[in-house]
């Protein structure tokens, strides 16, 4: 009888804990999902209005990239390595592939576990020029493009792959 009661209590506690973990993970997931990628469909298409909000979000490094840009994948690899050791870094990824038929492929790139903690966006359909101009009116579309805002609110931009030295310097400028 005692052992039966123990088993019922254990089961109740486990169920309760699982429920709490489940609810918590869902809350955490929901918190992340408003800025990142749902694994099955894109909910984070970047519009001009959303781009204005993104660049207002304090010190951060924003990296623009495209599926058509081999050099961008070198940059993404470097960022993934960095984020594995510094997942708290304020980095935002933006794919400039403004074509819904390519969103799934963008999604696959964003599935990299190290990117799970950072906001990940893709341009809304047929809005490349407008969004580009909103983020940085001096940018002519070359990729990868880095745009960062330091702790004092100053803005900087860079075209091409960031060297390790440049990346470390930016990290120091955007970190609290």
């Amino acid at each position: 009888m005692i052992s039966l009661t123990k088993a019922v209590i254990t089961l109740a506690v486990r169920t309760c804990c699982s429920l709490i973990v489940f609810l918590y993970s869902n809350i955490a997931l929901a918190t992340v999902d408003h800025i990142s990628v749902n694994s099955h469909s894109f909910t984070n298409q970047l519009t001009v209005e959303k781009a204005k909000q993104v660049i207002k979000q304090g010190p951060q490094l924003i990296v623009m990239w495209s599926l058509d840009c081999p050099a961008c994948f070198e940059e993404l690899d470097t960022l993934a390595q960095l984020l594995k050791s510094r997942p708290e870094l304020a980095i935002t990824l933006i794919s400039t592939d403004d074509d819904p038929t390519r969103y799934e492929e963008v999604n696959q790139v964003y599935a990299e576990p190290a990117f799970r903690t950072v906001p990940r966006w893709v341009y809304q359909e047929n809005q490349a020029q407008q969004i580009r101009y909103t983020i940085d009116p001096t940018w002519q579309g070359e990729l990868p493009r880095s745009f960062y805002i330091d702790k004092t609110g100053k803005q900087f931009s860079h075209s091409g792959v960031l060297s390790q030295k440049q990346l470390q310097s930016i990290v120091a400028k955007i970190s609290p």
């Binding site: 495209s66 058509d68 840009c69 081999p70 050099a71 961008c72 002519q140 579309g141 070359e142 990729l143 990868p144 493009r145 075209s159 091409g160 792959v161």
Partner: peptide
């Protein structure tokens, strides 16, 4: 122009 990337131009 020094750029280690894709101009797409």
């Amino acid at each position: 122009w020094q750029v280690d990337g894709c101009p797409h131009q």
